[in-house]
Amino acid sequence: MAHDHNVNPNAPLEYQSEAGRLNITGFWTFLGAEIALFSTLFASYFALQSRVGDGPTSIEMFEAGLVMIMTMLLLTSSFTCGLAIHEMRANNVKGVIGWMIITLILGAGFIGYELYEFVHYVHEGVTLGTSAHWSMFFILLGTHGLHVSIGIGWIILLLIQLARRGLTPKTASKVFISSLYWHFLDVVWIFIFTCVYLMGMVN
């Protein structure tokens, strides 16, 4: 970056360099765009919710138990991700890596269950082409799932870098940013859980 590396030793590691600060601001801005993206998906989902055509409705397909497990996995992963950042503030590389690995395992579990759910639906005959409602269901959840999967891949790369280079202002800002991303996906899931699953199972 074309800026001086004026290091501020009092700030947390990830905020110490100018580049780190800019990256974090940039990422928050990106999350603003992500909010717009998911809002559009949710709005489309609501617009198409009642358009089930000849296919089944949500209430016929959804299984509360499965969704609860997925929700718990992702919520817990957000918590362990927070613990990883806590360890980062304490300058404990091993702690960061340890908690992040647990986060990733929980995330992978979530993705596993989501895939299982999708495969299950397809076996029941509900696919992307069943009705506008189900097309949008798969696209909304698929977008979220893809985000989580990319997050897993990304954090694995960061953990390798962390293991090699230790905690520096640069690695710290990268890890911090990935944690913002992870929490954001958790928030999106809470909306999916409420708007898609809970509301879908009520009416």
């Binding site: 992307l128 097309s135 949008m136």
Partner: peptide, 29 residues
């Protein structure tokens, strides 16, 4: 722009992957 991204992706899904979001069939809108 995220709205455009989503809209384009949705129409792409309709055309390439068989979803029925904006189509005449499948109760699309």
């Amino acid at each position: 722009f995220p709205v455009l991204t989503v809209a384009l992706a949705m129409q792409t899904f309709d055309r390439l992957f068989g979803s029925v979001l904006f189509t005449l069939q499948g109760d699309g809108n």
